[in-house]
Nucleic acid binder design. Structure first.
Length: 650
DNA sequence: GATCCTCGAGTTCT
DNA sequence: CTCGAGGATC
């Protein structure tokens, strides 16, 4: 870095910081900021004579803004030094052991939120102060009192300062943003900004509505006479504060690495966002001996997690046509590594979304991926526009077959029933898992079959022969025979699979089961009245079904003859068991596939549903359980792990 | 008429 | 897994 580059970098950092801290509207990612910041630090270390007074390295924390009364902290709130990998960790440990060899380390999550300082006197909460610059913050006591996880009184009479992080749970964050979008307000970039913004509302009734959560991480001014940090923390939890979802006392690099890896792996399953793990020396006397540098304590460090947010560029927006004819836009971005995965595409859902977020071709965007969640474009970095970005024009004609598109609610749909994309996807759907479950007939194979002209509709599948298949590229004896076997195997499937496989609009797995149970093969002649009378089926679905039968009666009858799908045998009453008549939801991965467990439970008379509500009787969870488990917890629905479920089986 | 519960349909990456 | 909308329920 040269001197003039250094100056530019400082200005850039200050601009980022202003947007981040003061305007609660970041214009870059943490990663970009951190990288640049470290370059500046490196330059300043080499060229101390050049250091500019306004450099962000020359101050602690963010600035204090107007609007609230300023208030000094009883003792200073420090920031933490960041480390990013094992080498950094080993270097830090070496440094730390040099100061004091006989120590252990207390590790807990570093929450991604806004720091808060609480002052209690005579057992009462008297002040809540934002971090500010670490010495002076803003007095926000009224707002703080709306946070339910902050006790207003504690059983500790002496003056004590409790520090922690105010966060917004991920679920709540999504809700708030969804609401802001519908009300035409700019969404928050991340839960941290939402938390910080909510905390600094002038009207505390707004703060109250945001469902903030306080998680304590330490103590400022205090007189808790404990020799060990983790004991102090236990005293705090005993006062009525919330515990961290994970913590550990470690003695070696290996132990620290292992708890770090565990947290990284589990970070998605936590309700709040984490951005790292904090490692602190556990012995209080050693902490005092080690003391502080100008900026940070020597006895603690933040071990950052890999970033889940990256900046990338929208190269193109392509159009996909599904089996129902719905046209969906997908953004193609510069390939970017996020948390171990290379992200190249991000769904845009529908065309309103492009407009709402004002995404243009060539735009720099912040892209986000958390766990299994599909990559999402969070926001456009408007200040990075050069002027040559192009607005994306909503198509009027199908990208595949060129027929006219029609807007149906939020979806833009191709109306041509024989559009290649629709036909190919419909055949693939016919063969998919919840339908006839034909092995080896995925989208790629269907495309090959369609292009060769051998298969132009689902009936053609059953006229395939070994000879005709062998004329195709990529098909040798083995693969061809496997496919023919799989097709043969589809004969005699359960009847609901056959109905589902037809891909009738609004008729999915559940409705197909209802129809199969009620009418069996006679569903093609069912009266409208009788259809509407079925549980869960109304006018819309009935009309869609009747229209489909009217148009496709011959195809349906041909398939009935070929497939000989099994009409459902009269269901035997399941014997009495804990799951009979109960509504259950499955989440996470278990020793068998969820499908297998689902049919086992259904055989016992349970209704296996896909979403959790307060009517759900049990949520059965496996490894890596997701948001459904969280929802069960918040609704107070009973949860069972796989072993507990098996224990209840007859 | 409003609200809650479910289902259907769409998508990404390992 | 999440969104949006159909269906059921009050």
């Amino acid at each position: 870095m040269k001197k003039n580059q250094y100056k530019i970098a400082v200005e850039e950092l200050n601009l980022y910081a202003k947007h981040y801290y003061v305007l609660d509207n970041p214009i870059t990612t943490d990663e970009v900021y951190d990288t640049l910041y470290h370059e500046v630090v490196a330059y300043e270390a080499q060229n101390p004579q050049d250091i500019i007074a306004s450099s962000p390295t020359q101050r602690v924390g963010d600035s204090v803004s107007e609007g609230f009364v300023k208030e000094a902290h009883l003792s200073r709130m420090w920031s933490l030094e960041d480390i990013f990998n094992r080498d950094d960790l080993e270097a830090w440990l070496k440094k730390t052991y040099k100061l004091n060899a006989n120590i252990s380390f207390y590790c807990e999550p570093k929450y991604d939120g806004a720091s808060l300082d609480l002052v209690y006197e005579n057992g009462k909460l008297i002040k809540g102060i934002t971090r500010g610059d670490g010495r002076i913050g803003e007095l926000i006591t009224q707002n703080v009192k709306t946070i339910r996880s902050i006790p207003l009184t504690i059983e500790h009479q002496e003056l004590i300062e409790i520090r922690g992080e105010v966060v917004i749970f991920k679920e709540e964050f999504e809700k708030i943003n969804a609401r802001r979008l519908t009300e035409g307000e700019a969404p928050f970039a991340n839960p941290r900004n939402a938390a910080a913004g909510s905390l600094r509302q002038l009207d505390s009734s707004i703060t109250a509505k945001r469902n903030l959560v306080f998680l304590p991480y330490g103590i400022g001014e205090n007189n808790l006479e404990e020799k060990l940090l983790h004991k102090k923390m236990q005293r705090i939890y005993a006062m009525g504060f919330r515990k961290p979802p994970q913590s550990a006392i470690c003695n070696t690099v290996e132990e620290i690495e292992s708890i770090y890896k565990k947290m990284v792996q589990e970070r998605d399953s936590y309700e709040m966002m984490l951005d790292g793990m904090v490692i602190k020396v556990n012995e209080i006397q050693s902490q005092i001996d080690m003391g502080y540098t100008v900026k940070v304590p020597r006895w603690a460090v933040a071990y950052k997690f890999p970033a889940l947010e990256k900046i990338t560029r929208v190269k193109d927006i392509i159009l996909q046509v599904g089996r129902t004819g719905a046209v969906t836009p997908v953004a193609i971005v510069e390939p970017t590594e996020i948390d171990g995965a290379i992200v190249e595409r991000a769904t845009l859902h529908n065309f309103d979304e492009i407009q709402r977020k004002d995404i243009r071709l060539g735009d720099a965007v912040i892209i986000l991926r958390s766990g299994d969640v599909i990559p999402k474009i969070m926001k456009v970095l408007v200040h990075k526009r050069k002027g040559d970005e192009k607005e994306f024009v909503k198509p009027t004609h199908c990208p595949i077959c060129a027929s006219e598109l029609l807007q149906e609610d939020v979806l833009l749909k191709c109306q041509n029933l024989s559009c290649e994309a629709r036909v190919v996807n419909a055949i693939a759907y016919f063969a998919s898992k919840p339908c006839l479950n034909i092995d080896g007939l995925g989208i790629k194979i269907v495309e090959t079959l369609f292009k060769s002209g051998l298969v132009t509709n689902v009936v053609d599948l059953f006229s395939l022969t070994l000879d005709s298949l062998l004329t195709l590229e990529g098909f040798k004896e083995k693969k061809a025979q496997n496919l023919l076997d799989a097709l043969e195997n589809a004969k005699g499937s359960e009847y609901w699979r056959f109905i589902n496989a037809l891909g009738i609009e609004h008729i999915g797995e559940v409705a197909s089961k209802t129809l199969a149970d009620t009418f069996g093969a006679a569903f093609v002649n069912a009266e409208r009245e009788a259809i509407i009378n079925c549980d869960g089926i109304g006018e819309e679905m009935a009309d869609s079904l009747l229209e489909f039968i009217r148009v496709n009666r011959q195809t349906i009858e041909k398939l009935q003859v070929i497939l000989q799908a099994k009409a459902p045998t009269k269901k035997e009453e399941a014997t009495e068991n804990p799951f009979k008549g109960k509504t259950v939801v499955l989440t996470g991965s278990m020793s068998q596939s969820r499908g297998a467990i689902k049919s086992m439970l259904e055989a016992l008379g349970a209704k296996v549903s896909s979403s959790v509500s307060k009517k759900t009787d049990f949520v059965i969870y496996g490894e890596d359980a997701g948001s459904k488990y969280d929802k069960a917890m918040s609704l107070g629905v009973k949860t069972l792990d796989e072993a507990a479920m098996r224990g209840l089986l007859p």
